[in-house]
Simulated assay, not measured.
Amino acid sequence: MALASISLILIISQFLLQIIKIDAKVSSIIVFGDSSVDSGNNNFIPTVAKSNFRPYGRDFDGGKATGRFSNGRVPTDFISEAFGLKKNIPAYLDPSYTIQDFATGVCFASAGTGYDNITSKVLSVIPLWKELEYYKEYQSRLEEYLGNQKTSEILSEALYIISIGTNDFLENYYVLPHRQSQFSIEEYQNYLAGIARNFITQIYELKARKISLTGLPPMGCLPLERTTNLAFGGNCIDRYNRVAINFNQKLQALVESLNKELSGLQLVLSSPYTILYDIIQNPYFYGFEYSATACCGTGRFEMGYLCDQHNPFTCSDADRYVFWDSFHPTEKTNGILANYAVKTTLAVFQ
């Protein structure tokens, strides 16, 4: 690699490592999705998809395992802080929070869920349609607390973040036979994009105007998937990455279409693919040492209950790793991804 290119990467990586704060006109952060953004809703439902135990959360404030699938915060926490709101977004189902806490930020996400209802059934988690029902309930509670006019102002000025989709492919389509027998991979992508369209339209009708739709990451490079590819050197699974790229293109087309159709809508696609792939391929330039394996356990297949405090292999310094468990990034990586989003696609909301 040329010296000039290395210098440019170093400058960019150091910029992204900085916590960026902005003076923005965003009233609240409202989150829908899966484990990439779940801040603890799964703690309160009967599912094995939990992370409310150590070593999860060991680098969170007070070393608390909140139910976030990371050693610390998730991207939406960093985004909230960057927009001058709260440092951590509370989970809607957590009874220790009140509607007052939720007025400036709330998370409805559920680890293990997807666009597809079948995906949510795999681990018995909250389906996307139920997340929408919780939002409607939240809206009613907010109206009781603040009144209709103030609630309308908050909801129309809130930034809605939707981060979902990876599980539909890695827990559903490529593992279970049902959807494969119904759809080709392209047809399934179109099916999911249709669900995304309907969901965005529904929250638009419920006052959402500023929406960030998150694309898929390079899912073939997750440590779990690389472990299944050990016979070929543990490299990224290219066909999974191509699917992610193709699906992100469909989501971009959806964004452009809805922005034309729905008056007053500001919808953006915030894709982590390019930046996360670069971090994985060039970990040193972002201050990491390991990107093929994760911090927890052997770093190849552990997540959830397989990643517990009794695992003797868990690393002592998560900041050296791109991934915390075999599926989820470390807090350090989440911070970089969030800051990248804030300075690029989310800049229109500043």
Rank of each mutant, 00 (worst) to 15 (best):
L276A: 04
I162H: 00
L17Y: 08
N117R: 12
K260I: 07
N42Y: 03
G63Q: 03
T345D: 15
E256N: 14
Q139A: 13
N117L: 12
T314K: 08
G304Q: 00
L16P: 09
I30K: 08
I30N: 07
P283C: 01
G297C: 10
G233P: 08
F44R: 04
G114N: 02
F349M: 06
A109H: 08
F301W: 11
Y174V: 08
A109E: 00
I279P: 08
P312K: 05
Y135S: 04
N190F: 09
A103T: 12
V348E: 10
I200V: 12
F15M: 13
G105S: 01
A244S: 14
L265S: 01
A4M: 12
A111T: 03
I154G: 10
Q350V: 13
E261S: 12
N259V: 00
A158Y: 07
D116A: 05
K332I: 01
R197N: 13
G57F: 05
F288K: 03
T98E: 09
R73W: 00
V175W: 01
S5Q: 15
G40W: 06
D61I: 13
I22C: 11
A208P: 03
C221V: 00
K64V: 15
V348W: 02
H178L: 15
R242V: 13
V175F: 09
P55V: 02
D116F: 00
Y240I: 10
L16N: 03
G105P: 03
L213E: 06
P217N: 10
F183V: 10
Y188W: 08
V26S: 08
L216C: 04
V26P: 09
T214W: 02
S184E: 09
F53I: 05
D319P: 10
E81Y: 11
T113W: 01
S156K: 14
I336G: 06
C307N: 02
L265W: 02
F83M: 05
D34N: 11
D77G: 01
L337E: 01
R300I: 11
N229L: 08
I89E: 07
K260M: 11
I336Q: 02
V26F: 05
R320I: 00
Y56G: 06
G112P: 03
I200E: 07
I126W: 00
E131H: 03
C107V: 05
S70W: 07
F83Q: 10
I280D: 09
V322P: 04
I275M: 09
D168T: 07
A4V: 14
S291W: 04
N241T: 03
E133Q: 14
D61E: 14
G335T: 00
E171F: 13
V348C: 11
L128E: 00
R300M: 13
A244R: 06
V125A: 02
A231E: 14
T119L: 01
A49E: 09
G194N: 04
D38A: 03
T298M: 11
F288A: 10
I161Y: 02
T228P: 07
N241S: 10
L132G: 02
Y277E: 15
I211E: 04
L93I: 00
T228L: 13
E143K: 15
Y204F: 11
I161C: 01
T47H: 02
T333C: 06
F301L: 13
G215E: 06
F78Y: 05
T214R: 02
I20W: 11
Y240Q: 14
T119C: 07
F313Q: 14
Y135H: 11
K136R: 15
I185K: 08
T76M: 09
L142G: 03
E153C: 08
K87I: 04
